[in-house]
Write a protein that binds this DNA or RNA. Structure first.
Lengths: 347, 347
DNA sequence: GCATAGTTCACATACGTATGCACATATCTT
DNA sequence: AAGATATGTGCATACGTATGTGAACTATGC
């Protein structure tokens, strides 16, 4: 191909070739209205020929904005080589594309809850704003969020919308999701619906899902039975142990609503290990619709969140905040994805 | 807390407070040996108090290196809101952590095979090097790789190591993996082992896995039977169709080696839909060990690649290349992860 | 007591772009 | 036709850091 120039072309090179000044080149390439169409086209043509690309560092330095967002995953118990929560990982694609569409680069990082990530990206001018993804007890990092707000850092968090923690939070309508899940089980004729997942404010999303569970039962005139509830974090082990505990205690149940798919998958395995059939003996519904959910046996009925909409909402909200608009937290609608783990002859 | 300063502190602010010049601050913060210990400590102390962070843009502009790597996922048939191949997604965690450990930021992007991504990150000085992840027919983008090499762009690709395409390629030892998988099935007593996956050079990794399949059969003195082979891309549908096709043709088979887990999962479902038991009637082995593999029913035996080592190798190789070292392509060892889809009474 | 080497720092400047301002020319008022 | 607005471009400079060069000062040698 063409001979490799010894040096990357700069806006001065283009200016020289076009017979204009460097500032005019800058303006022309940014489609400034204060440069004539003829000049602009000439400059853009030359830039293309030289394969010129604006230097991101110089541009960001001068304009004081990086056109870059930072995506921070954080995990509570982070083992060093851990997997990321599959649900959040699924959101990555949507966020990435949305960023690209808006002309923003995306910087990515995993973080422990410790460390001083909360200031790094902002202070070093690497990113104009931050997206925070991660389940977790936000009591732990409430201080950090407050600090971010105090510093004027732009950020948006995926979590339980409408709560009172600092900053902007978007999330699915977890309560409505829990309600839909349990209503579905009730319609199937289930009588003793168990809940697995921590129903405390330390896990606000799980708590909201639990409240939805309560809503549906209450509406159906069924009493909330603590004996049908088990605490659990979002893991397969946790779901399995909960089921074993219920079986061991002699508790009758014909359905399980799990606060996450990972819990549900572990629960399903434990149910099957106990010789019970899904969905005939026990129907199971999860929450999140992680990729594995459609591959289990039987495929898992679950509450699916619109990941595409979520990614778009996060990016959009963050960019609005950056541009100075006032943005309100809001919840995204969810839908029930009925699969075989709750289908069948029972209805 | 402290009162928020109206302006972010710069190295000049620190210099003033420390009674030194700005260059001395820069050197002190970079631990340059040409600044005395006393001065360095004083400066670092002040920097800490002011919560000073080096401006990434200015630093990168001046030093002409960004300390950033770009991770490019690309997909052949990219639907706009597509999922990323779960296998590559799994590698993300390892790469991210490794970058962090080396003090590099990670920029992430999804790309079509079209577009001019191959020059963007390099030319705009956004990244010092590029990691390319994606299966695919690299005939399609061989030109782009060549272009990258010509431009002197630093990049490393995950793929079939040791092939002759331009640039540096790391990958798993796909052939050994295929061999191990099939040896395992032979040891279980399987006689008619099918292969699903395109055994052509357009899918070089699949081809290598197929060669491993042939190796194992040949070593066992079994003839390679084309009737036991079906082409297929890496998707569940593809795996399912392949199985249906074999069953429809009356072909006998008591085991399947699928070139990817997605294929294997689709194949398992088709096998079960046909009323056959896994592993008793048909044993199944996949390749990749995606997260869903352990959750299928039965859990899928598969060839697992060391994702942690892979991520580290990619980052390390790229950084070595950036620093001017000569780096050779090499293959990483793989292991068989035996689960229930190939276990059982047959052995 | 002066030259040599070593240490520690300041000065000047470069990295490449974006933008406020002034200025020149062209177009429009009355 | 002279003054008033519009339009397009150049000039100067700022963004914040990193680094080559040289100056001052200290320590060492004879």
């Amino acid at each position: 191909m063409g001979s490799a120039p010894s040096r990357k072309p700069t806006s001065f090179d283009i200016a020289y070739l076009a017979g204009v000044s460097q500032p005019t080149v800058s303006r022309a390439l940014r489609n400034s209205p204060s440069v004539s169409a003829a000049t602009r086209e000439k400059i853009q043509q030359i830039a293309k020929e030289l394969n010129y690309k604006v230097d991101k560092n110089a541009s960001s330095l001068r304009s004081q904005q990086s056109n870059t967002l930072a995506l921070l995953f954080f995990e509570d118990p982070t083992p060093d080589d851990s997997q990321i929560n599959p649900f959040f990982l699924s959101m990555l694609g949507s966020i990435t594309r949305q960023c690209a569409r808006r002309g923003y680069d995306l910087l990515i990082s995993f973080q422990q809850l410790s460390g001083d990530w909360h200031t790094d990206y902002q202070d070093s001018h690497r990113a104009d704003g931050i997206i925070l993804l991660g389940y977790g007890d936000y009591e732990d990092y409430r201080d950090r969020l407050t600090h971010l707000v105090d510093q004027g850092t732009h950020f948006v968090r995926w979590g339980l919308a409408g709560t009172d923690e600092p900053g902007l939070t978007l999330g699915s309508d977890n309560r409505a999701g829990g309600r839909k899940a349990v209503q579905h089980l009730l319609e199937k004729g289930c009588q003793n619906i168990a809940f697995i997942g921590t129903a405390s404010s330390h896990a606000p999303e799980f708590e909201a899902r639990w409240l939805g569970y309560c809503d549906a039962l209450t509406e159906a005139g069924i009493a909330i039975d603590p004996a049908l509830q088990r605490d659990g974090i979002s893991s397969e082990e946790s779901g399995g142990e909960a089921v074993q505990s219920m079986i061991a205690s002699g508790q009758k149940f014909d359905a399980i609503f799990a606060a996450s798919d990972l819990i549900a998958i572990g629960a399903m395995r434990a149910v099957q290990d106990a010789g019970l059939k899904i969905p005939d003996d026990v129907a199971v519904v999860g929450f999140d619709d992680i990729p594995a959910s459609s591959m289990t046996a039987p495929p898992l009925t679950t509450v699916t969140q619109d990941l595409k909409a979520a990614g778009e909402a996060l990016v959009t909200a963050l960019l609005q905040q950056i541009s100075g608009e006032k943005v309100e937290s809001f919840a995204l609608p969810v839908e029930l994805m009925v699969r075989d783990s709750s289908a069948g002859p029972k209805a």
